[in-house]
Design a protein around this nucleic acid. Structure first.
Lengths: 215, 215
DNA sequence: CAATAAAATGAGTGAGCAGTCACTCACTGA
DNA sequence: TCAGTGAGTGACTGCTCACTCATTTTATTG
């Protein structure tokens, strides 16, 4: 399908899991991530997962009882990969850079989100589409992500209001939706290359901040 | 799955197709839309489509060579359903209401989009998820929708600039992305009920317009 | 009301595939 | 040196399900 794209490697983004779990299990998950991302869960044959992982088909079932179980294992792993990416940068910016203007903080956050999606695109694409008709797994993902984003955005909003940078009418939920919407629309319509992205983020924030600024 | 939701009926939203095509064919498509929306394409058995359509399994294959062909037929139908919904209201507002302020036009457009998604949610949910790993079909859908939205938004932007309501720096593409993003984020996070939606749309536009207005 | 054509049916078929299991063999430790 | 172990293997199995087709039902025609 997309031959140009490189294989995703869990080792890079979740090295502690890769270190504390059998090599073969990690190889199976990696093979599954990449094949699911390319052709989807249903169209992926366990035979192909085995081939890509460089093992025999039967070995898969020593580590996972069913094909489904591979997908189920992937959900908490995806959460572990993206949750710290959501939390850490905001905390860093809030702690280390207390006096940066709000729009600089938001710009850094947006760029960081888009970078995260660029880095983990394959992993996200392998899991997310399959969750649409698996409500429990989707909820698991949603509930571990959305409240966290909202928490951080309202922290920024409180700070901005206290400093008199943001208008009192600004609602954290709506602001989160505007930012989430930007990230979503951007991921869907653009090819996600870093240079033009940086420009677009600036332009988006320049306009959005006008609407949020104290008046 | 979601028992509360009513069955989607193509007849309601594409009556000319329903009139010019065999009754059984329309029944099959309706049954497929609703079953795909509930369990997804792969998990849907042709037997179940037949049962819901009130016909025998074999009859499906008199109207469609393969199960896949049902999905492929659905894509142009979805386009036919949502394309006029995108075009007509904007044209109406632009033609009949030349002197309405830009933010009123945008509010009407946004509300109309959200209503369209509410009306055709089942149809969209039955088709869209299945296109993620079928690039040609997805492109077909994207290319018939995105340019149209962009065209209309730039029309509004040109008008707004000419009237001195919108700032010269406003970029139609970015504005489209902000609006598309709002619709996307809204569809994903909210339960889509009309009353609170109207309030949120107003709030969104109130802030966004601050950023777009002539200064 | 035959006679013929067309449409509809659903039991049957077989290709495809997740999951099994009898077997292999590298390694261990006695 | 060799019995014991268990991770690893891949041919095999049993089942599912999209699709077929011989038969039945319904529509059309003279």
């Amino acid at each position: 399908m997309e031959h140009s794209e490189e294989n995703y490697d869990l080792q890079v983004y979740l090295s502690d899991y890769a270190k504390t779990h059998p090599d073969k299990e990690v190889r199976i998950i990696n093979a599954a991530i990449n094949t699911f991302a390319e052709k989807g869960f249903e169209a992926t044959r366990t035979k192909e997962i085995a081939q890509r992982a460089g093992i025999a088909e039967g070995t898969i079932f020593r580590y996972f009882p069913t094909k489904n179980a591979i997908l189920e294992r992937m959900v908490p792993l995806l959460i572990r990969v993206i949750q710290p990416k959501i939390g850490r940068p905001i905390e860093e910016i809030l702690d280390l850079n207390q006096d940066a203007p709000v729009d600089r903080i938001l710009a850094a956050v947006l760029k960081d989100r888009l970078q995260m999606i660029r880095d983990n695109g394959r992993f996200i694409r392998s899991v997310l589409p399959e969750l649409i008709h698996r409500a429990p797994l989707l909820d698991q993902l949603r509930q571990s992500i959305l409240p966290m984003i909202e928490g951080y955005v309202s922290q920024v909003v409180r700070m901005g209001k206290a400093r008199g940078e943001l208008d009192d009418s600004v609602d954290a939920k709506l602001m989160m939706m505007q930012m989430l919407g930007f990230v979503l629309a951007y991921s869907m319509t653009k090819g996600l290359n870093p240079e033009e992205e940086a420009r677009d983020v600036e332009q988006f924030l320049q306009h959005s901040m006008q609407g949020w600024r104290k008046r």
